[in-house]
Simulated scan of single mutants.
Amino acid sequence: MTAPAPAHVIADDAEALAVAARLAAEFRTGAAARDAGRRLPRAELDRLSASGLLAVTVPAEHGGAGVPARTLAEIFRRLAMADGSLAQIPQSHFVYVNVIRRQGTPEQQKFFYAEVLAGRRFGNAQSEAGTKHVQDIRTRLTAAPDGSYVLTGVKHYSTGALFADWIPVLARAEDDNLHVAYVPRDAPGVTVVDDWDGMGQRTTASGTVRLDAVPVPADRVLPHHLTFQGPQLHGAVAQLLHAAIDTGIAGGALEEAAEFVRTKSRPWFESGFDTAAEDPLLIQRFGELDLRLRASRALLAEAARAVDAATADLTDETAAEASLAVAAAKAHSGDTAVEITSALFEVAGTRSALDSLNLHRHWRDARTHTLHDPARWKIQHLGRHVLTRTPPPPHGLL
Rank of each mutant, 00 (worst) to 15 (best):
G334E: 08
G200I: 02
G52P: 07
G153C: 06
R42W: 14
A16W: 03
V99Q: 07
I245S: 07
V216K: 04
D175G: 01
V58W: 11
V180R: 01
L23I: 01
T350N: 13
R351Q: 12
M199A: 09
L79K: 08
A213I: 12
G66H: 08
T105G: 04
R185I: 04
D194G: 06
R376T: 12
L86H: 02
G123Y: 08
L86C: 05
H8P: 00
A258T: 09
D146P: 03
S271Y: 12
L211N: 05
R34H: 11
L17W: 11
L241W: 02
R138Y: 00
H62W: 15
Q232P: 02
E107R: 12
I249F: 11
P59Y: 14
T318N: 07
Q88L: 15
F76G: 00
R138L: 08
Y157T: 08
L291Q: 10
G66I: 01
G252V: 06
W377M: 07
R38V: 13
L293M: 02
A82H: 00
D373I: 05
D12Q: 11
G235D: 08
R138C: 04
T263L: 12
R38W: 13
G64A: 05
T275F: 15
D373M: 11
A312Q: 08
H332L: 06
R101Y: 02
V216H: 06
M81W: 03
E321A: 07
L53Y: 09
A32H: 14
E270S: 15
L23V: 10
G160D: 12
R292T: 10
R77C: 07
E174S: 10
E302N: 11
V116P: 12
Y182G: 01
L354P: 01
W166L: 15
P280C: 07
L293T: 01
D219S: 04
L324G: 12
L387Y: 02
T341K: 03
D136F: 06
A144I: 06
R28D: 01
D136I: 02
A205Q: 07
F94L: 04
Y96C: 00
R28P: 04
A253F: 09
T315H: 04
W166K: 02
A5M: 11
S49R: 15
E174Y: 10
G207L: 13
A50N: 04
T208N: 05
S51D: 07
L354Y: 10
A325I: 09
G396C: 02
D365W: 01
T336Y: 14
D197E: 15
G383L: 01
K155S: 14
P68S: 03
P6F: 06
A82M: 01
P394N: 14
W166M: 04
E44D: 13
A298Q: 15
